[in-house]
C-alpha cells in the first residue's frame, strides 16, 4: 500500500469510527465526570447515573471558555447532522495540524543538519 492509499484509507477508517460514534456513543458521563458525581453524592461508584444528575462546577476564580462546537455538536436543532460535521471537522483538523506541524519542523530543521 503506498503512502497516498494509506493516508486515504486511514482517514476513511477514522471518519467511519467518528461517524459511528455520533450515533452509538454512550450518553453516560465519562470516568472523570462519573467520579465527580460520586464525590458530589449523586451516584454510587457502581450504580447507574440518574438522568437528572448534574456536576456542580466550581466557576469562581476559574477560567471559562466557550468553544465553537461544544460537546462535538452544532446545537440541538442540527442533531446528528451537526455531530457528523463536528467529527468531520475535528478529524480532518487533527490530521492537518499534525501533518502541517511535522512538515514544518522537518523543513525548519533541515538547514541545521
Amino acid at each position: 500500500m503506498d503512502n497516498k492509499t494509506f493516508i486515504i484509507a486511514g482517514i476513511i477508517v477514522a471518519l467511519l469510527i467518528g461517524a459511528v460514534a455520533v450515533f452509538l456513543a454512550s450518553g453516560d458521563p465519562d470516568g472523570l465526570e462519573s467520579t465527580a458525581l460520586v464525590v458530589q453524592g449523586q451516584k454510587t461508584i457502581t450504580g447507574d447515573t440518574p438522568a437528572d444528575a448534574e456536576i456542580h462546577e466550581e466557576t469562581a476564580g476559574r477560567f471559562s471558555y466557550s468553544s465553537p462546537m461544544p460537546d462535538y455538536s452544532l446545537g440541538e436543532s442540527l442533531g446528528s447532522a451537526g455531530g457528523l460535521v463536528a467529527i468531520l471537522v475535528g478529524t480532518l483538523l487533527a490530521f492537518l495540524v499534525v501533518l502541517g506541524l511535522a512538515y514544518g519542523l522537518k523543513i525548519a530543521g533541515k538547514p541545521t543538519k
Binding site: 503512502n3 494509506f6 493516508i7 486511514g10 482517514i11 477508517v13 477514522a14 471518519l15 469510527i17 467518528g18 459511528v20 460514534a21 452509538l24 456513543a25 454512550s26 450518553g27 453516560d28 458521563p29 465519562d30 470516568g31 462519573s34 451516584k43 461508584i45 457502581t46 450504580g47 447507574d48 447515573t49 462535538y72 467529527i87 475535528g90 478529524t91 480532518l92 483538523l93 487533527a94 490530521f95 492537518l96 495540524v97 499534525v98 501533518l99 511535522a102
Partner: peptide, 25 residues
C-alpha cells in the same frame, strides 16, 4: 503520513464514548 493518520484516528477514537457499565462511559 503515518503520524498524521494516527492523529486523525486517535481523535476519532477519543470521540467514541463506549459504555462500560456502572453508569459510566
Amino acid at each position: 503520513p503515518l503520524v498524521a493518520v494516527l492523529a486523525a484516528g486517535i481523535f476519532a477514537l477519543q470521540s467514541f464514548n463506549l459504555p462500560v457499565a456502572m453508569g459510566t462511559s
